[in-house]
Design a protein around this nucleic acid. Structure first.
Lengths: 351, 351
DNA sequence: TTGAAAGCGCTAACAT
DNA sequence: ATGTTAGCGCTTTCAA
């Protein structure tokens, strides 16, 4: 690896001249010098040492990205969009960390980023307790979180980019109602993310608007303490058995996310129920996998690429200008009609 | 952020003493000094600046990880295991890159790693052409590739960690044969990865061993030039339509991977065929999602966590000791029986 | 228009 | 057992 001094020698100029062209300060440079420098750089295949540059400037073109588990297709999807945006639009690389929703791991990740001089970090699907985030921000990190903040309205040092969860669930429930369903359930896993409560509110809002408040229940399954890939799906599967036994049995199910919906599909099948013959199911996320399910899953699709763009813009922008105040950014989801929703069976089940 | 000089001042010792405790050179240090230093470090919440350290030592505890797309659940799975092993066993962070199977992006990633002083890189599911890899190795990267190398037997500067693909496909085909299938097909996408040809050989070997060589065909669909998440599944879906129309129609299908199998399941269903009633399908990979399919997909499971361990051990090990020669590491897959394989229909279809 | 030199925070040889 | 110091490769004043 050649250094800036090698290039200077090769070009017969000083290192500061090389540094100047490296950093685009070429306004008052003679054409000839510039060319000689460029030739030398090319000849030596020279690349500036980032560590040295960073030691001087305090900056490095990297971002941290924290996810519960990159094996989860939804986080994989977001991660891909984030990494691509960071790279293609801002030439930043991405350091990835899996947290398994473990706070100590999150803190360790922030520490390492700081030690490496990485100042921007994107946190996907956080724990509800944001205190260690605020602490990391005080230590110098610029943070953007995917998903809503825990206490809406409260001041935060963190950007929050999320989908309009209320609207997403409302859309899902309204679709079911429109198809004729009168006995609804919102199916979820207990207390993991913030988005949950807003979704429940949206679900209820749709039911109330249709005069169905008394027929819209929330069915809730607990997750294990340790993070597993199929955790969500397992909850769905387990809950499906319970749902199958309920009287009256709901005919329209809104799942808190696509993964849980997959579990529902599998569990309902195991319980001898047909989807959408006996029960209709609608997911939320819009993973490409949903189109492959049997039946293809109707779902509420999140505008992931657009959200990822905003996420990256915000970290980079606020790193460049610390004066920018953190904000909340809400995106609108869309219904994706497929085959898991149909009219309810003619004979109301369970009655 | 405090520096080593701040700590030295606080503890009333020299910077080299601080550096010594930072680097574990504390054999002949007085108990008292050590304690004073540790107290000072804790008091200032001091963390060594990695960039400065790296500028001195030339090392940084980071690894690169290159995948075609982290949105693909299989790569997400491997990535998670790799990141976890790197972090928990070697305290290395991971820089992630999506390549979309684009060689220019791969080269750009290597360049950046080198500029950042990252010396180890893990490449998952490479392009067949490995020349730019060898070039990156010459420039100083230690590389480990997931999946077999292009020309077995040829010398390589790269470690290759892979599953025994021949055995995987043989296992799959043998399972189908054992269940009574006599008309088999190996279903794949054309020419993307190396593993393909070995799988085909394994598939054929199983057929030949059962005297079924003439009844074991390979069905091959082409992928689009640009990388898409559902690329594999799309191929499977498209091919399913073709398979449904074949006469005699194969009753036992071995898919080159789980994703393609998902497409097969969806496409077969669309063609009005039942799995496993009319056609049996077996995948390869063992993604957790396979258990959620309808029917739950029988598959050949790869020992991903063990492979990831080896991958990480190799990069780290060879970075520490460049004298270690690159090698090939083969892992044994296992059959995971689920519901997508059954005996063939009594009336041979298509005859 | 170009060059000299200080210094970013750390490590490690060398001195004491 | 502890301290002094050169130098890793770069950026950036300041001087010429």
């Amino acid at each position: 690896m050649s250094t800036i001094a090698d290039v200077a020698r090769q070009a017969g100029v000083s290192v500061s001249t090389i540094s100047n062209v490296l950093n685009g300060r070429i306004e008052r440079m003679s054409r000839e010098t510039l060319e000689r420098v460029q030739t030398a750089i090319a000849a030596l295949d020279y690349r500036p040492n980032r560590a040295a540059r960073q030691l001087k400037t305090g900056h490095t073109p990297m971002l941290g990205l924290l996810v519960p588990s990159i094996a989860n297709p939804m986080y994989g999807y977001i991660a891909r969009e984030v990494e691509t945006a960071a790279q293609e639009r801002f030439e930043h690389r991405v350091v990835l960390g899996n947290t398994y929703r473990n706070q100590a791991k999150e803190v360790g990740f922030f520490d390492d980023l700081l030690a490496h001089g990485v100042r921007g970090v994107i946190v996907i699907s956080s724990l509800i307790d944001e205190r260690h985030f605020e602490h990391a921000v005080q230590r110098g990190l610029v943070m953007v979180s995917y998903d809503r903040r825990a206490t809406p309205g409260a001041a935060s040092a963190i950007d929050h980019v999320s989908v309009d969860n209320h609207e997403a669930a409302r859309l899902a429930a309204a679709h079911l109602i429109e198809r004729g369903h009168r006995e609804l359930a919102f199916v979820t896993a207990s207390g993991v993310t913030m988005s949950r409560s807003e979704k429940i509110r949206g679900f209820r809002a749709a039911a109330e608007a249709a005069g169905l408040a008394a027929h819209a229940r929330v069915i809730d399954g607990s997750t294990s303490s340790e993070y597993g890939d199929s955790e969500m799906a397992d909850v769905g599967r387990r809950l499906a058995a319970r749902i199958a036994a309920e009287r009256p049995r709901p005919t329209g199910l809104v799942a808190v996310n696509d993964m849980l919906a997959y579990g529902l599909l599998a569990g309902l099948r195991e319980a001898g129920l047909s989807v959408p013959g006996d029960v209709s199911v609608i997911g939320m996320d819009g993973l490409f996998l949903s189109a492959l399910m049997s039946p293809a899953l109707t779902t509420v699709r999140l505008p992931v690429p657009a959200m990822a763009q905003t996420i990256v813009e915000r970290v980079i922008g606020r790193m460049a200008d610390p004066g920018i105040a953190p904000g909340e950014f809400l995106f609108t989801p869309e219904l994706e009609r497929r085959d898991s929703v149909a009219a309810p069976p003619a004979t109301r089940s369970g009655t």
